[in-house]
Design a protein around this nucleic acid. Structure first.
Length: 596
RNA sequence: GGUUCCGUAGCUCAGCUGGAUAGAGCAACAGCCUUCUAAGCUGUGGGUCCCAGGUUCGAAUCCUGGCGGAAUCACCA
């Protein structure tokens, strides 16, 4: 058990013994002692003063004395105002260090015997290439999956590809009109981008026709409905739903171009899935559920035939579930896929990594499932993340401000290459090693930039300022790791072996103890990141750890020391730090490098 | 207009269920490489924590009301 929890647990008993009063366990607050003060953990005694009717200093001193007697780990204490600062015995830290310093799975939990968790993320439309917003989604989904996995959960990563609908028909129609048979092979253009280009062409022509009709005297609304190209594309969608072989053939072909393109992007991002659902295969499932709800009397039908749910008791409005023509809407599909997912995996939790623009949608989805008394209605969890914005606001395709995922990754690699060359770090590396290095550093920088921010907050990306490679960044942390490995390469082999007995307590420097204390926190961070579904906990921790190590590294020499006991200890301390850095970065999907 | 979320240094972000003098990075300035990787380390300047009330021994954090911004409220997805 954690020493912090141990202190929290014995505290009520101690107060009972000392003062004869019962305190609520919720008033017990033990936190890490701030750096400016002496101690390892701090008990805040203010909450007890009222009940015990004594000055905080008096209470603090009495509790401190009792804790020293009661807990072997506690060495001494001091009281400042209402804060009781406890110092643990150095042996406590050294024992911890001896037990874990060579454990590459330090911080991870044993596999749990619980039901698995399904994490849905990415979920792209097939009419456009992936952009920066998708990158945030993918990185979050990937990292959360890794974090849950490290906490012992069985994780299934699923992707739900929106491969049908009016949007893809727009690309198809434009390609038929103006494509002249162009393919990714004949043009050398990546498949998803090629399809996206035709989508843009469609929109351009559509807008031209709309403004023409408006000039001819129609209202905006009329013009949008009457534009010739829009009528054509609606016809195409109808043909698709009717199974027209020609249309289906083109649809298959163009979607495959897109998938080939996506595969390249996913690959480069280091993202993979256990299962991919396609809406073209799942979109009908929801209708059954709607009928089921109609039978149960949970939903109702309007005279025009459309089906609705009344959510006024839940504080929302009526919500359409099925169109009057019997076709499904967005939420119909999600009702279906939720059921499908439940049937496929019998999960304890279904996490949807979807932007916060869809908060309302998921609110409705949960409430509808609850009304239907679905067993999985409480298992559904919307991991709602904030938008990535530019300094001037949202990315807009019309203004050409969309930051393309492939372009951005390429730019990151190029920047990594440039900086590496400037610093002259490539000596003795093969071409292949260099490419791997640029990839890991550039992509690491990008991933860290995204993941260090609290998912639920909007964040700003400025395309005119390249993502930093100094300071609070992945390259900084990677550099620390490379430094550690540089030392380990030079260290005598026999000193690298794990050992139980480390070092005399009196030989430990403050910086070294601080490092051990930080390492000691890592398992807590791994748990917290899972509980809050927040990779930024890990990202910020990894930075703190690297920062602490660099200070230690600067102040002390690891290998050039007279006392061989100290050398051994420092080598192990560096190695342990390296293990934890690697582990933390792995939870973020970032690969380490041993040289940079 | 209703609902939800957000507002911390010039910029990008931390700040846990209320706890000690609000922290990092970038940018600016000043130092540190004959010593294990200077993508590093050290220092300086920079804050009405949007505003006003309230709860509390104690509020950036909780509550109420403003102001400012975002999202959403489609027979779009």
């Amino acid at each position: 058990m954690y020493i912090k929890n141990k202190i929290e647990e014995v505290l009520p008993g101690i107060i009972k013994e000392l003062f004869g009063k019962e305190i609520k366990s919720s008033t017990v607050l033990v936190q890490k002692t701030r750096r400016e003060f002496e101690g390892d953990f701090t008990v805040v005694v203010f909450p007890f003063t009222k009940l015990l009717n004594k000055p905080p200093e008096v209470i603090g001193n009495q509790i401190g004395e009792a804790l020293v007697k009661k807990l072997d780990e506690v060495d001494s204490f001091n009281v400042i105002k209402g804060f009781l600062n406890l110092t643990l015995k150095v042996e406590y830290w050294l024992n911890f260090f001896a037990d874990h310093h060579s454990d590459v799975y330090f911080g991870y939990s044993e596999p749990l015997s619980e039901k698995p968790i399904v994490v849905e993320f990415s979920s792209p439309n097939t009419n456009k290439p992936l952009h920066l917003g998708h990158i945030r989604n993918n990185l979050l989904g990937d990292s959360i999956s890794r974090i849950l996995d490290a906490n012992g959960y069985g994780v299934h990563r699923v992707n739900l590809v929106n491969d049908r609908g009016i949007h893809i028909c727009k690309s198809m129609l434009a390609w038929l009109k103006w494509g002249d048979g162009a393919t990714p092979e004949t043009t050398g253009i990546k498949g998803d981008r090629l399809v996206g280009d035709y989508y843009v062409l469609f929109e351009k022509e559509y807008r031209r026709q709309v403004s023409e009709l408006i000039e001819a005297g129609k209202t905006q609304e009329q013009a949008e409905a009457d534009a010739k190209i829009m009528i054509e594309v609606r016809n195409m969608l109808k043909k698709w739903e009717g199974g027209d072989p020609e249309i289906i053939k083109i649809w298959r072909m163009m979607n495959n171009w897109v998938y080939n393109g996506f595969d390249i992007t996913y690959n480069k991002l280091g993202i993979s899935f256990d299962k991919t659902y396609y809406e073209s295969e799942t979109y009908l499932h929801g209708k059954k559920i709607v009928e089921e709800g109609l039978d149960k009397g949970v939903f109702f039908r309007k005279p025009d035939g459309s089906i609705w749910v009344d959510l006024s008791k839940e504080g929302l409005d009526d919500k359409l579930l099925l169109r009057s023509d019997g076709t499904s809407v967005y939420i119909t599909q999600d009702l279906g896929t939720a059921q499908l997912r439940y049937d496929d995996f019998d999960p304890s939790q279904m996490i949807y990594v979807v932007g916060n623009e869809q908060n309302y949608h998921f609110d409705v989805l949960k409430k509808v499932l609850k009304k239907l008394a679905k067993p999985y209605c409480d298992a559904l969890y919307h991991l709602s993340y904030g938008m990535v914005e530019l300094p001037e606001g949202k990315m807009k395709s019309r203004e050409g401000t969309i930051v393309d995922a492939d372009d951005l990754m390429d730019l990151m690699e190029k920047t990594a290459e440039k900086i590496t060359a400037e610093l002259g770090k490539t000596e003795g590396m093969t071409e292949n090693q260099k490419l791997v290095l640029y990839n890991k550093v550039g992509l690491g920088a990008l991933k860290y930039f995204i993941l260090k921010v609290d998912p639920k907050k909007n964040m700003v990306f400025n395309p005119n300022e390249s993502i930093d490679f100094n300071g609070h960044t992945a390259p900084f942390i990677l550099y620390t790791y490379a430094r550690i490995h540089s030392v380990l390469r030079k260290a005598p082999k026999e000193k690298l072996l794990p050992q139980k007995n480390t070092i005399k307590a009196s030989k430990i420097a403050v910086k070294e103890k601080e490092l051990i204390k930080l390492l000691h926190d890592y398992p807590l961070m791994v748990k917290e990141a899972a509980n809050e579904q927040n990779p930024s906990v890990i990202a910020n921790y990894a930075y703190d750890l690297a920062k602490e190590f660099n200070q230690f590294y600067h102040e002390y020499s690891i290998l050039n020391e007279n006392d061989s006991e100290i050398i051994e200890f420092r080598i192990r301390l560096a190695s342990f730090t390296g293990i934890v850095i690697r582990s933390a970065l792995d939870l973020l999907g970032i690969d380490v490098v041993e040289r940079m």
